Computed example of a mutant assay.
Amino acid sequence: MTTVSIIEDDPHFRAGLEVLIRNSKEFAVISSFSSAEDALPQIIKQVPDIAIVDIKLPGKSGVELIKELKHALPDLLCMVCSYYDSDDYVFNAIKNGASGYLLKDAQPQEIIDSLEELKRGGAPMNRYIAKKIISTFHEKIIVHHLAELTSRENEVLSLVAEGLLIKEISDQLSLSHYTVKSHLKNIYTKLHVRNKVEAINKLNDTRR
């Protein structure tokens, strides 16, 4: 049976998690704590398979606890269960070793399903959190692609985004039509797009 420790300062939510997990067939709660300070030494003594950690705890935060637990117990699986869904909380938790992130409005079966997914080596996440991570990852890829453009290519792309035609760009930058078209071709290749509209959309994605 897969063992679980719970670190949650809300006594009602903690009790609810304990009942939910104890009523499951595959998981057993072996310890439960209201603070990181209480949890850390005890979890190191009696190591569970999974730790469910709240982000906002009295004293040390859940992120700090996850970081220390993963340092001491690299194989421990940590899953956040929190009300907080801001980028800072989500990405700091994952960066410091959380393998999953759920919000506290998750349905009971979703929590059990997430524990099962975690046990199988997955990374369970609330759908909203998953979209947030994918969106941020996508934006970083776009920024990386834009950074590959030369200064002249960036100039051309900015003018295209302003609605200028090739002839107008040629006149403004004192370039031949052929050179502007060549820059556009390079821009499309580097941004992995097929036309001006897609290139402009990628540029606008980084400005939102």
Rank of each mutant, 00 (worst) to 15 (best):
R152L: 03
I6S: 05
N96H: 05
E8S: 10
A36G: 14
S31V: 11
I44L: 13
L77V: 12
C78S: 03
S31W: 07
G97W: 01
F137H: 03
E68G: 11
L17F: 06
N201I: 11
L69Q: 11
H183Y: 08
A51D: 03
G16N: 14
G121V: 00
K196M: 11
M1V: 06
G163C: 11
A98K: 00
I7L: 06
E153R: 03
G122F: 00
V19Y: 13
V193P: 06
P124A: 01
G100Y: 00
K181E: 14
M125A: 01
P124E: 00
E148P: 03
T3Y: 06
S158I: 05
N154G: 07
I169H: 00
L191A: 13
L165N: 12
L203C: 10
E155I: 04
I66Q: 02
S61A: 09
K132Y: 05
K60S: 15
E37D: 14
I52S: 01
Q107Y: 09
E198V: 08
Y101T: 04
D105L: 07
S35E: 08
A93E: 01
Y178F: 10
I30W: 05
E162Q: 14
T206I: 13
L40A: 12
N204R: 10
F27R: 03
I169M: 01
S32R: 10
R208A: 12
A161P: 06
V90L: 04
N154F: 03
S34C: 13
N186E: 13
A199H: 04
E64K: 09
K202M: 13
K56P: 10
I44E: 14
D85Q: 12
S34G: 15
Y128L: 09
E139L: 07
L17I: 13
F27E: 04
I169E: 00
N204F: 13
G62E: 03
P74D: 05
Y84A: 10
P124I: 02
T179C: 09
D9K: 04
D105I: 05
L146I: 02
A39N: 07
S99Y: 01
T189P: 10
